[in-house]
Nucleic acid binder design. Structure first.
Lengths: 356, 356
DNA sequence: CTGAAAGCGCTAACAA
DNA sequence: TTGTTAGCGCTTTCAG
């Protein structure tokens, strides 16, 4: 019947020469389409003569054949593709996480699609509505739990920089946030700081709650006290305002511990507007060690997170889940980068404050 | 024949209850699978009774049905998905470009996949090797032409912040880089600067070549001269080194024009290490108006690029191409952000240098 | 207004 | 060693 093709509804478009299919390659090489599939899929060992295989490869090259992924995905029922959900793009932490995850994905021949949860739009609209590919698994970094609510329940999920408890994640990979805060606190204590203010991020993700808790714990039972906590949106301008409030405390704090380098940058601006020098009059610490930390002057003392390692470990965990293994939670070590924004608490007005 | 199913090679896996298909929905609703497709595809008006449509929707909801995209893509021959290729992730310019493109994509029900060309690995490995989805089109921003060489020749391509001539792009969308540099030059001239150094990015993309050319042209025929050009990798540390060299010129330049805010941040550090105050002793300008520009102190005078608009316009252009229209090249206006890093060229040692 | 059927390009089981 | 064939889930035409 001549009507065989009219069912498809595909207009024959002569302007775009149809992209070659496996059948075209087969015809060109004088073999069957199945042989093409075997050869190009690398499973021809002991099933196809190497001469034929060569012919097929030549034909594919010749026609500039590229397999149709949609067809492959349909047939296989999997796509070998993972989604990485992050709350923001222009942030080295996430770009480093992505780099690590992408490297491991490449090594395992997996695709990785990056989904920046639309900033400002909260909570994230269903990532899967707008994600074009079918996915085998999801990695989510530093996301507030609500933002993941739309997440399709039956996909393997690995969470990064997130609450290890109480989620439906198959695995969690975290930098040791608490240890980072502890190191910050110890560093400041060793420099003689006793009045410490916390510039905290008003973001609903676990990582910031955890930072606040860790700071409080690290200071508890020491001779230093947390004189105030000022919350702010995660921006330089917000950090400036919050730090301005913190510096208005009387007697003023000698050190500002910030939840993030962006906030710390704002804190530095605030200190200077008050006429304070950094670090002689006030010390400032950041968190994350973004590129920004060393772009500032003085450079920020901050906590270096193993972002690439977090991404890589997370991807390995997801691969484990996909292969049916039961990966466990990982906690990766962090480091304190001591730089110019912290110094001895010299000019304290009230020397013998606490004696505990 | 009972063998009908054993051909598929899909092991019946009781642990993962197979995801429901359109047939399941049809069965559940007591209609045919075609009806399901029509209803859920929104093309049922005047073909299916609204009562049936409602039943189908309920059944789909009930089973938590999600259409299999691979099957749809295979059937349709298109994926309604575009790829956005950028040279780096952690850079507001690109994240803003992405935001603009993603917004327009959403409005048109298109998917957008972000492909950060692996930094450090140059030129980019074939994006299509690692891109999981089949693509309908590509948008590339600020890429060196070689890095796009692997690009599959028959995909519609829109280029952003790139050479409008001599490429195979269907359209080009650029911020008016040359005008930006002109404004920088005029601003410095008006402040009395006559000895200007250029801290340029040693990156092979059109945008930086264009910036250098525009600066030279803007200065030509004025009383000011370009005393030197120091090239550097696109990092703060690189900017510091290049600016250090530039400041060693004798007599020294009174202003450092940088190709990018990152370089400008480095230039500021270099100036301070020389003991120069900004802007009293030396003025510094950036380009791009990254968040970094206002995180620094003093804040950078820089060129604000309409990044979101670039992304949005680029996506609209791609949609135009996909729909068979012939979009043309766009040039979007930029603005000079005058801030604290530039000031009058007061303390010039050699007052009457040129008199042209 | 609804159902039957074809076929997108690929993979893998099976036959030859 | 190679070919034949079924079928993944969907959209769309055509018949009823």
């Amino acid at each position: 019947m001549a009507s065989a093709r009219q069912h498809t509804g595909q207009a024959a478009d002569p302007s775009t020469p149809a992209r070659p299919t496996g059948r075209d390659v087969a015809r060109h090489a004088g073999v069957s389409q199945a042989t093409v599939s075997l050869v190009l899929g690398g499973k021809w060992q002991g099933r196809v003569s190497s001469r034929t295989a060569e012919t097929v490869r030549a034909a594919a090259e010749d026609l500039r054949y590229r397999p149709n992924l949609a067809a492959r995905h349909l047939r296989l029922g999997r796509t070998r593709t993972a989604l990485l959900v992050v709350p923001a793009l222009s942030n080295d932490f996430f770009s480093r996480v992505h780099a690590g995850a992408a490297r491991v994905a490449r090594e395992h021949d997996l695709g990785l699609v990056l989904y920046p949860s639309p900033e400002g739009i909260a909570p994230a609209p269903d990532p899967f509505e707008s994600t074009p590919a079918t996915l085998d698994g999801v990695i989510a970094s530093s996301m507030a739990p609500e933002a993941l609510a739309a997440l399709h329940g039956d996909l393997p999920l690995v969470m990064l920089d997130s609450d290890p408890a109480g989620t439906r994640a198959a695995a969690t990979v975290n930098p040791d946030i608490a240890d980072g805060m502890r190191r910050v606190a110890e560093h400041l204590l060793a420099l003689g700081h006793r009045r410490i203010a916390h510039v905290s991020a008003s973001v609903g993700s676990w990582t910031f709650h955890h930072r606040a808790r860790a700071l409080a714990q690290a200071l508890a039972g020491t001779s230093a006290s947390l004189v105030c906590t000022e919350r702010s949106a995660l921006t330089v301008a917000g950090g400036l305002r919050a730090a301005t409030r913190a510096l208005a405390t009387d007697p003023r704090p000698s050190a500002l511990v910030c939840d993030d380098d962006l906030l710390a940058a704002g804190a530095c601006k605030a200190a200077r507007r008050h006429g304070y020098r950094i670090p002689q009059d006030v010390s400032v610490t950041g968190f994350d060690d973004l590129d920004l930390a060393t772009a500032l002057e003085p450079e920020l003392t901050t906590v270096r997170l193993p972002a690439e390692e977090v991404g890589a470990t997370g991807m390995r965990a997801l691969i484990g889940v996909l292969e049916g293994r039961q990966p466990d939670t990982a906690l990766l070590p962090v480091a304190l980068a001591r730089r110019g924004s912290t110094g001895p608490a010299a000019g304290q007005r009230s020397p013998g404050a606490e004696t505990g």
